[in-house]
């Protein structure tokens, strides 16, 4: 399996993405902003199709679109980010625009499938460099803001009184989520960003670990699910995204069942 270049690239890409998606997703779930991240990936989809139309790389469009939407969402504050209806609206408009761009593209069918459901085996070594850069940036950003972000998430009023810049943190965090989403979409596709971003995080949060241990465990579980998906897809010839999604769901169920029986 590892004799092939594209598989080695895929494993490396999965590692880079999973190590970011796990911890970012951990905060995302804790903050109750998972739907917002879902919307970001859809705005990213519109950005990616737009980029394809202009002859740019889809990752540029994905990251650019999601980043702009994330920052705007953070600036708008609770008026948007906390409202399901507003997010749903943004999401559907973005998807609609993406559909238009796809329609205008001539080679739309294969591009659409790759964007929506991921194409981890199609990741080029050049793309790997970009993923590494984005992942390093994300982890560094998260490392810098983790402490005040945790305080602001658990006790917003108290944090504000202690001088924590709530809105700045919100904008910074959503920008981070946008980049992580764009990375994740390379592997799982826009529609399945939840599988690496949310599934490992919810599973780990159920365990009641301390924050630092939880962040690490989320990264580890995301990595295990991403690599597991790759291996299973190699042996079964089913799409990687399918297996990652299935492993994510199974992990969550297993932890739930284990806790039920122990209690």
């Amino acid at each position: 399996m590892l004799d092939y270049d594209f598989m080695r690239t895929a494993f490396l890409a999965a590692q880079l993405v999973a190590l970011v998606c796990g911890p970012v997703g951990w905060f995302l779930v804790l903050r109750g902003q998972t739907f917002a991240s879902h919307a970001l990936s859809h705005v990213g989809f519109a950005g990616a199709t737009g980029a394809l139309m202009l002859g740019l790389s889809p990752l540029t469009g994905l990251a650019g679109g999601a980043l702009a939407a994330g920052i705007l969402m953070g600036l708008a504050g609770d008026r948007v980010a906390g409202r399901d209806v507003m997010i749903g609206l943004v999401l559907s408009v973005a998807m609609g625009v993406g559909a238009l761009f796809l329609h205008l593209l001539t080679r739309s069918a294969s591009a659409a499938t790759a964007l929506l459901f991921g194409d981890i085996l199609g990741i080029s070594p050049g793309m790997l460099g970009w993923l590494a850069l984005l992942s390093a940036g994300c982890l560094m950003g998260l490392g810098i803001m983790a402490r005040p972000l945790l305080f602001a998430t658990l006790q917003p009023e108290m944090a504000e009184a202690k001088g924590v810049p709530l809105q700045l943190l919100d904008v910074m965090f959503l920008a981070l989520v946008a980049i992580a989403t764009a990375e994740c979409a390379q592997i799982t596709g826009v529609l399945l960003v939840f599988t690496l971003m949310v599934a490992p995080a919810v599973t780990v949060l159920r365990l009641g670990l301390s924050p630092l241990a939880g962040l690490g465990a989320a990264a580890g579980l995301a990595l295990a699910e991403a690599w597991g998906g790759l291996i299973l897809s190699w042996y079964t010839d089913c799409p990687t995204s399918f297996w990652i999604a299935l492993l994510g769901g199974a992990g969550f169920l297993l932890v739930g069942l284990a806790q039920r029986f122990r209690a």
Binding site: R147, P148, L150, M158, A159, K162
Partner: peptide
């Protein structure tokens, strides 16, 4: 314990260590 600790110098940048 974790809940109380989250407020310890929670305004400082860095990891919750």
């Amino acid at each position: 314990w974790s809940m109380v600790a989250s407020a310890l110098h929670g305004q400082r940048w860095g990891l919750p260590w």
